[in-house]
Every structure is written in C-alpha cells, then in structure tokens.
Amino acid sequence: MELNKTILITGTSKGIGRYLSEYYAGKGFNVIGCSRSKSDLTVENYHHFLTDVTDETKVKEIFTFIRKKFSRLDVLINNAGIASMNHVMLTPIKSVEKIFSVNFTGMFLFCREASKIMSKQKFGRIINLSSVAVKLDLEGEAVYAASKSAVVSFTKVLSKELSEFGITVNSIGLTPVKTDLIKGVPEEKINSLLDKLTLKKFTELRDISNLTDFLIGEESSFITGQNINFGGV
C-alpha cells in the first residue's frame, strides 16, 4: 500500500482516467481527480474537482487544495484529452483551438503548477499521455497528432528543466483503447490503425497502469524525457 502518497490525475470521470483513479485509490494513494463532469468514484481517498483543465484559476485552486490538505504531490498524470478526425481542408479553426487548448495548454498548466510543489520536496513523477499518432503520422489526425507531438516535445524539455529537482517527466504513446475517445471513429479506420502496429490489438487498461506503475516508482529515478509507445510502434 502506498499510504501518504498523493497522485493527481486529469480527466477522471471516464475511460483511462476513471480506471487509473480507482486503481491508485485502491493502492492507498490519496487521489485527486478532475474533469468537466462528475465522477461516480466514491472512495474515501478520492477527491474530485469539477474543472476544465484549461481554466487557470480553477486549476490553481486544485493545487492550493493539495498544498493545504496533503502538503505534497508525488505523481501527476496528464490524461485529459480530446480527439477529432478530419481532413485538414475540412478542419474548422475552432476545432484546432479546442484540441490544442485541452491537449497541450491544459497539460502545460498542470505540469507548471505540479512542478512548483514537486521542486520543493525534491521528488516528483510526471506522466503525460500522448499517442502513437505522433510517430505514425496518421492521415485524418493531423491536428490531434500535432497537439500530441507538442506534448512529447514539451515533455522532453521539461524533463531537463526539472531534472535537478528529482522530478522525472515522461510521456506514453497510447494505441487505441476502448474508450469514448474513439467511440465516433469508424471501425475500418480503427482496424487500419491497428494494422500499423507491431502488436495488432487494443491497449488494455491494465497495460497502461503497468507502465505508469513502472514510471512512478522510486526506482525509476533514472528514466526521464522518454516517450514510450505501446504496441511496438
């Protein structure tokens, strides 16, 4: 059991975030989650904030809560993200702004505020969820892939800026997971994507917690600035 350790996960009302928040609460972490909608997770060591990850004031309130209640933050997992498939010529500018706002700006905000707490305690683990769309240059996902590419690039630079504080920063390149994020994607598109993988199958939620367990471990202090892709990509 990981008593007295604190983990913050974004986008926890459903999908990967919902799974990880229950998983780490079950391991004894103090879990703080946030999303734009309510969470149905009702365990004592889970605290939920109704927050848009791009709302700077609300995001800062989460970190004030963490400082006052727990005085530390061990792990941040930036999971919140949105996707949109479209040909570039048919992509509205609003869609571009929204995707970058959630996938990049939101992630940036949480990293910045988490760094402030973690640097003082000289320990921290930050994991940013990216996508294999970055490496596979998937057609129809130009904007999504570009936003996740920004996440990977930011992760690498941040890992250098925070290295002297005992904070590691890594990203995970997700392959398709059966969540709402891909609900609207046609089956043939998903199958075509799976075909590009070395291991042609969906990522299971357990695969994700297996990797996050590894990256947040105290023994993983020498692993930073890495982007780890699933599926052999």
Partner: peptide, 18 residues
C-alpha cells in the same frame, strides 16, 4: 524562480491573494 514561486504560493495560502 524559486523565490517567485515561494512568494506566489504564500500569498495564495496565507493571504488568499492570487
């Protein structure tokens, strides 16, 4: 950088000034 972060956090936590 560390000093600025420290001042910002104390202003928020102690004086409720963001």
């Amino acid at each position: 950088v560390n000093l600025i972060v420290e001042v910002e956090q104390r202003l928020t936590d102690k004086l409720n000034l963001n």
